[in-house]
Each structure stands twice: as structure tokens, then as C-alpha cells.
Design a protein around this nucleic acid. Structure first.
Length: 563
RNA sequence: UGGGGUGUAGCCAAGUGGUAAGGCAACGGGUUUUGGUCCCGUCAUUCGGAGGUUCGAAUCCUUCCACCCCAGCCA
């Protein structure tokens, strides 16, 4: 179960006060209410961590409720993926799985109740007329000519709406509030509309469907939700949320609070845009590792604990800001550093020959699996005369402060021996073909009995024993500098997609024991980043996908020195 | 020029009358068999601006400014 508590934030403070004052009998019941019209992304994770995290912290419960009131947009596929993702994030709704559609009968009865008390009426204006009557931001609206229909007439019409006697758009049911209200949401909002559409759960049982405003608060009240947390754009809807609760007989009285949704720089986080990326085939699917969807992050190798940690780090407030991607990457590194076994591998190999090491000799050397965690044990790594090292780990003409291998220089092969570069074999283009070294047998394991130090430690793989892996380097999972800004300039964000620098390297030498790696396991390829064993790898060989890079001080130094 | 919000460092964010937490990033140093990790240090005389109240203001008042949301029978 998630170990991360939500950090101090205003909602937490409100709940603490409510518990102290025994509001809601001291109960804390929250809910995560997605509409099943797409996959969950990291923005939803913020809401999930908030809602489930708070419930956990205060010994309450959190419901998973699908807000499925619009059959045109919703699909079963999404209700499954959402459940899978919430579970993967580490949260459990126990028996509290609900659907707004489960309440359709009850909501209908409540609508009848509203009509009976003279607080709702059937309006027969068409959509355009309705818009016209609503007024504008600065001008009040006008009463609908149908506003004064009698209770009997309204009851009759509404029942006939349900019975399917009318075409879509012919009538709607509206709450009778105030057409001159400065808040447009209060100008007689629509609560039921006719939709002759098949619903993913109720099928053809209904042809009228409640709107969000009507269904949401009532569902909260039916379920006994105490704290209904939603994003800022619903702040204007709160008076309406309260109006329904005040005007209908309900078993409980929830309160709505709003918080700012997540914005991540360079990242597409709107469902509208994500759907386009998927439908237009820009990505391979909702779980494409370049996407910020929960399933994409999972496939990329991001641990759910890192996402929870990220949500804890960013906090919860009411101001809309843009969170730096670096925080997510930090959270991922922090988690993976603790949990990922280290392994040696070479992305750009060059051969290193130890000339004074016998041709047929082989050794098994002991390597530590994780210096952060002794309990992860050790493994043995085969060693022989010919090895691969990273091409970049050798410089014929080393720059200042470069402390890896160079002619005449001694370095350590990690867990193996000290070696000294004696010779370089190049081809006719001047490309280094082989590096010839001598080793010091006294330094077995990587330590010198005479106490002498070397500045560099190199990673290596035995040429004779190594396994060949395909390594994919996704440098970034984000795609557009600022989609909203692009669209404001009148452009299409699709025109500004970062191609996503995916580099695929085949046949890269890695330690042989990786042959037993399981799909989904994460490793730190030392000095190269954290990698996840591709879920699809198997018969076609080992595939490692980069999850996130390591902090690279050398790259920074090099950049600084070369300007 | 209707209504509702937000404004604390490059980014996120605590703080709600007693003298600006923390994290990310950045920079400097130490440890290190990963140029990783870890550790230490530096980084807001000031809280969107201007006035005012107060012994004392990021917090209260006035006013101005900037940005976001709302005119779906979407959620």
C-alpha cells in the first residue's frame, strides 16, 4: 500500500478541521470520478493520489466512480483500463466501485421530485434558441417561454421523454433557478437531455441521460461522499452543486472543493489531444512509452512508487502552474536508484585486449547488485582476455579532467583489474579498432594491494560471453514545447511535435546473466541510465528501453570546457 | 467593460499578524570500485505593484496590474 502521505495542503487542512469538529460524523469519504472516455494520464494520478491518499491518511475510504452520463463518448474499454491503472498505482477501492449509470433510476426519481416541487421544467426551445435566451457574460438571460408550464404538464412531458416519444433535442429538462444570475451555470441549467444512444452499461434502457451537474453531486450524496474534490474549472459549478443538494431529499451532504490540475512542461496532457495522437497514429497506442499516460509510463518502466512520489513532491494548490519535467525525472531516479539492480553493458563498443592475459583463461568475478542495498546481493561476471568497453571511455588525446582510459594511463575495470593502455590499433580511417592493455594480476577485484589509486573506473563486458541486446533510447516522453501556446497562435499542436528522438541500437553487448531477465524488470545500466526490459521482448531477444537518464556530470563538464 | 479564481526564487510549494519551511533546478566542496548515489554549503532583506492600518504585514484594508476559467443538450 502506498507509503506516501499527501503533503500539507489546504484540502488536508480542511479535512483535519472537519475531523476535529466532527463534521460528517468524523467520516472521510472521497471519490475518484473519471469519465470512461480515455486512458488515465499523470494528471489523473495527481487526483488519484490526492483522493486515495487522503482517505488512507484519515482512515476513511475512497470510491472509484465512473461518471458515465454521456453514452456518446464512453466505452467499456476505458472502464477496464482505468481500473487497471488505478490498481497499478497502488490504490484499492475495495467494494466501492460505482457507476453514475447505476443511479439512473434514482436520479430520474429525483428529477421527478424536482418537477413536483416546481423547481424544474421541460423546455422545448431548440439548442440555438436556448443559447440565445441564456444571455451573455455581460447581459442577463431571458426566461424560456416554457418556464411556467404546470407541474402536471412537466411531469407528463418528462415521463414521455423517458418513454422515447420525442426526438433528440425536442425537449430538455431544466432546473428553474434564475435566468439573470451572474453565474451562467445558474441560468436554468439543463439536467436531462434526450439521447437515443446505446449506453455501454445500460444499453437501450434509457433515452434520456442526466448531465454532469445533476448527476455528480447527487451521486456523491447517494454514496455518502464527504469531500468531493475536483479541478478548478468546476468552481463555477459549486453553487449549482449546492443548489441540487439543498433542493432535494438526500441521505448526506457532501462538500465540493477545487484544486489546480497538473500541467507538465513539454507534455500533452489533455484528453482531447491525446485522443488525436492515438487516433491519427502518431503513437502506437495509449500505452506508447512516449506518452504521459499511466500505461505509457508503466511500459516505459516508471515504477508506480515514483509517480506517487512525484505527486507528493508537487503538492496541491489552487494556482495553475506548469510543473517542471525535471521533478518527475527526479522522482523516477530516486525510486529506481533504490530498487534497480546495476548491470554493465556497452552501447557503443570498442574492443579492449589484455595482452598479458592468457588466451584461454576465464574467470568469474563478483559484482555488487546494488550499492544502495546490500540485501540485493552479488552476481558473478565472466572475464577473459578480450572485452568490450565504451568507445567514449577511451581518448587518444584526453581533454582536461578526463579520467578514463588514454594511452599510457591506468584505470580500473570495475570489479576486475587495473589495466594500462599500451597500444592503440586503428584502421585506415583513423578509427580506433582495438585498445591493447596490460593488466596487473595483483589488483583482482579492483583494488590495489599497494594502495595506489586510479581516477577512472570503466565498465566492461566479456566479448566471449556477452549477450547481445537491443537497446532503445527514448530521450524524452514529452512532445510539444507548449501545445496551448501553439494553438493560441492559431497553429495545430500536431505541427510542432517533437519527433521524440527514439534511437534503437541493436546487438549491444551486455552481461550474460541478463538473459534471464524478466519482462518489465528495471536495471541501471551503469553510467547510462535506467532501463526497463521491454514487455514484448522474448524470442526475438532482450530489449531494453530507457526509462530515464542518470545525472551526467561529465557531460556538463565537457560542455562547460568546450564552451 | 458580468461572475468566479490565482499571483511567494528559474519551477513546484509551506506560511493566514511576530520578522520568509521544504523540494526540483543551478552553483561550490567532500566521500565514492558508477563522472551515479550520498553528504556539506550557497541560492527571496522580501512575498504581482502602489498606498494605508499596526510596535510589528506575505498575512488586515484600499487601489491598481497580470494571468486563468465560464455563454455544451461535454465532463
Amino acid at each position: 500500500m502506498p507509503e506516501n502521505k499527501m503533503p500539507s495542503n489546504f484540502i488536508r487542512t480542511i479535512i483535519q478541521e472537519d475531523v476535529r469538529k466532527n463534521t460528517h460524523q468524523g467520516q472521510v469519504v472521497t471519490r475518484f470520478p473519471p469519465e470512461p472516455n480515455g486512458y488515465l494520464h499523470i494528471g489523473h494520478a495527481k487526483s488519484i493520489c490526492l483522493n486515495f491518499g487522503l482517505a488512507l491518511e484519515f482512515g476513511g475510504r475512497c470510491h472509484l466512480r465512473f461518471d458515465d452520463t454521456n453514452p456518446l463518448k464512453e466505452e467499456d474499454l476505458y472502464v477496464h483500463s482505468i481500473q487497471e491503472d488505478v490498481r497499478w498505482l497502488g490504490y484499492d477501492w475495495d467494494r466501492h466501485l460505482y457507476f453514475a449509470s447505476d443511479y439512473f433510476e434514482r436520479l430520474y426519481d429525483l428529477a421527478l421530485e424536482l418537477i413536483r416541487s416546481g423547481k424544474a421544467y421541460v423546455c422545448s426551445l431548440n439548442q440555438e434558441e436556448t443559447r440565445h435566451y441564456r444571455g451573455t457574460l455581460t447581459e442577463p438571460g431571458k426566461d424560456s417561454p416554457y418556464r411556467d408550464r404546470t407541474v402536471e404538464e412537466n411531469l407528463d412531458l418528462f415521463q414521455r421523454m423517458r418513454a422515447g416519444e420525442f426526438a433528440e433535442g425536442q425537449h430538455v429538462l431544466r432546473a428553474k433557478i434564475d435566468m439573470a444570475h451572474p453565474n451562467l451555470n445558474m441560468r436554468d441549467p439543463v439536467v436531462y437531455r434526450i439521447m437515443h444512444a446505446r449506453h455501454h452499461r445500460t444499453g437501450d434502457a434509457w433515452c434520456i441521460y442526466p448531465t454532469y451537474d445533476f448527476a455528480h453531486g447527487l451521486s456523491d450524496a447517494i454514496e455518502g461522499v464527504t469531500h468531493s474534490l475536483c479541478s478548478m474549472e468546476f468552481e463555477d459549478h459549486r453553487p449549482l452543486y449546492d443548489w441540487f443538494l439543498d433542493n432535494l431529499p438526500l441521505p448526506s451532504r457532501p462538500r465540493q472543493y477545487e484544486f489546480a490540475r497538473l500541467n507538465l512542461n513539454y507534455t500533452v496532457l489533455s484528453k482531447r489531444r491525446l485522443i488525436r495522437l492515438v487516433q491519427e497514429g502518431v503513437v502506437s497506442g495509449w500505452d506508447d512509452p512516449r506518452l504521459p499516460t499511466i500505461s505509457g509510463l508503466r511500459r516505459r518502466g516508471v515504477p508506480s512508487a515514483a509517480i506517487r512520489r512525484f505527486c507528493q513532491l508537487i503538492g496541491v494548490g489552487k494556482s495553475e502552474g506548469i510543473v517542471d519535467m525535471a521533478i518527475l525525472e527526479h522522482a523516477i531516479r530516486e525510486e529506481l536508484n533504490k530498487s534497480a539492480p546495476r548491470v554493465m553493458g556497452v552501447l557503443d563498443p570498442v574492443k579492449l585486449v589484455i595482452v598479458n592475459y592468457a588466451q584461454e583463461k576465464e574467470e568469474e568475478l563478483q559484482a555488487v547488485n546494488n550499492p544502495e542495498d546490500e540485501s540485493m546481493g552479488t552476481r558473478s561476471v565472466p572475464f577473459c582476455r578480450e572485452l568490450f568497453i565504451e568507445r567514449d571511455d577511451f581518448r587518444e588525446d584526453p581533454p582536461r579532467k578526463y579520467f578514463r582510459l588514454a594511452p599510457g594511463r591506468e584505470v580500473r575495470l570495475r570489479y576486475a583489474y587495473f589495466v594500462t593502455c599500451e597500444d592503440v590499433i586503428k584502421d585506415e580511417d583513423g578509427q580506433v579498432q582495438e585498445i591493447h592493455c596490460t593488466y596487473d594480476p595483483e589488483t583482482r577485484g579492483g583494488a590495489a594491494p599497494d594502495g595506489r589509486k586510479v581516477k577512472g573506473t570503466l565498465h566492461w563486458v566479456s566479448a566471449r560471453h556477452c549477450l547481445r541486446a537491443t537497446v532503445s533510447l527514448y530521450d524524452r516522453l514529452f512532445m510539444v514545447p507548449d501545445p496551448t501556446a501553439e494553438e493560441k497562435k492559431g497553429g495545430d499542436f500536431m505541427q510542432h511535435l517533437n519527433p521524440g528522438s527514439l534511437t534503437v541500437l541493436k546487438d549491444r553487448p551486455v552481461e550474460p546473466h541478463l538473459g534471464r531477465a524478466q519482462a518489465g524488470e528495471r536495471y541501471q545500466l551503469e553510467r547510462k541510465g535506467y532501463f526497463c526490459v521491454d514487455p514484448d521482448s522474448g524470442p526475438q531477444g532482450l530489449v531494453l528501453n530507457r526509462t530515464v537518464t542518470l545525472r551526467d556530470t561529465w557531460a556538463k563538464l565537457e560542455k562547460k570546457h568546450t564552451g
